[in-house]
Amino acid sequence: MTERFDAKDLARAVDAGILQPGQEQALLAFLRQQPENRGTFQLAHVAFYFGALLIMGAMGWLLTEAWMRIGDSALLAIALLYIVLLTGFAMALQRRQQPIAAGVLAAVAVSIVPLAVFAIERMLGWWPLDDTQADYHQYYTYVQGGWLLMEAATVLAGLLMLRLVPFPFIVMPIAVALWFMSMDLSEWFFGSPFSWEQRRTVSLWFGLALLLVFVVVDGRPRRDYAFWGYLAGLAAFWGGLTLMNSDSELGKALYCLVNLGLMGLAVLLRRPVFMVFGAMGVAAYLGYLSYEVFADSLLFPLVLTLIGLGVIGLGLLYQKRREQLSQSLRARLPSWLQQALPALRD
């Protein structure tokens, strides 16, 4: 749990002899200069991210067909204007010590890059798809080998933006573009039609690879770039795994075990996002048991209630002894694996 301190708290520390007179002012000034490291949950931060998602949606999957009719040159001009203005605002906010607002605007600018590349391709006659496949919003809903240049440009723009405005949320549009690219490359290599079964398999393996990459990245940069990478990787991996819908009881039990493994990784890495996805998977499996296997059992709801109470108890125990539990679990692993794991964050 993150604590908030003010000048009165530090003054009491001086009175108690914990700090020397004069040190409290230097410490308070230092803490005020570290807004990006405070880890506090503020309503303003919610507004920043929600506003960014609205713009991403408006200029992405919610873009109407009317925008396709304004002409490719006009579409390119608008997309470039958005990118330039948003990048300029982001850099200005960064200079004003507003890293979160700056970072989300920079991420929005990156998310508009595919629209600009789409317009350029059509203007130059490079667009590889026919007119029935030319709507931009289909970039977010269909697998097509023709989207590859847009995805590659988005990844490159995201990496460049990280140099200008180093903020973790920019990893999200990069990860999404890579996810799309994994699908489209598979369609390009294996040909059409690209079935739902193939999409699920590609999504699962891409998500697993992304998770492994960010386990390596985690804890090394000063900023927490791994969070958004974990989120994107889990969405791809867990989504592909969940949509596989095995017909065998063994397959469904293995699905539950994998999700229990994700919950264990949450303790090992101290990353709640793994717990969220793992808990959803276990809940889905228990729901299946309730409606299909134990539909006529009177004891099953009671057993689930006891399990739920036990999970809450474990959560309380983890909240109190998070450091000890994480260290104890790591100590049971082979030494080579302990060295490969990222350092624990607060």
Rank of each mutant, 00 (worst) to 15 (best):
A47H: 09
P35K: 08
Q34Y: 05
E249K: 08
Q20P: 02
A226V: 00
P272Q: 14
A157W: 02
E36H: 11
V46I: 11
Q339S: 14
E24P: 01
L85N: 07
A134K: 15
F294A: 12
D15N: 11
A253W: 13
W67S: 15
V143Q: 04
V276T: 09
Y142E: 08
L115F: 14
N259C: 11
A116C: 02
Q97P: 01
L212Q: 03
P168Q: 13
G57L: 02
P193C: 05
G125E: 13
D9C: 09
Q97M: 11
A52L: 03
M123R: 08
F89A: 15
V46W: 06
L286M: 13
V202L: 05
G191M: 08
Q133K: 11
L298C: 02
F30C: 06
G278I: 03
A153G: 08
E197D: 14
P35Y: 01
Y49C: 14
I83T: 00
F206N: 00
L43I: 12
D6A: 05
Q42T: 15
L105T: 11
L234Q: 03
S297T: 08
F227G: 14
L286I: 10
P342L: 00
I174T: 05
G281H: 05
E151S: 12
E197T: 15
D184V: 03
N259F: 05
V46Y: 08
L185T: 01
A44F: 11
P221Y: 09
P99M: 01
P342C: 00
A52T: 06
L63A: 07
F41R: 14
L105A: 13
R222H: 15
F274L: 04
Y285L: 01
R330A: 02
Q34H: 07
Y136C: 00
S192M: 11
A235P: 01
V14W: 10
G125A: 12
L234S: 13
E151T: 08
A7T: 07
F41Y: 15
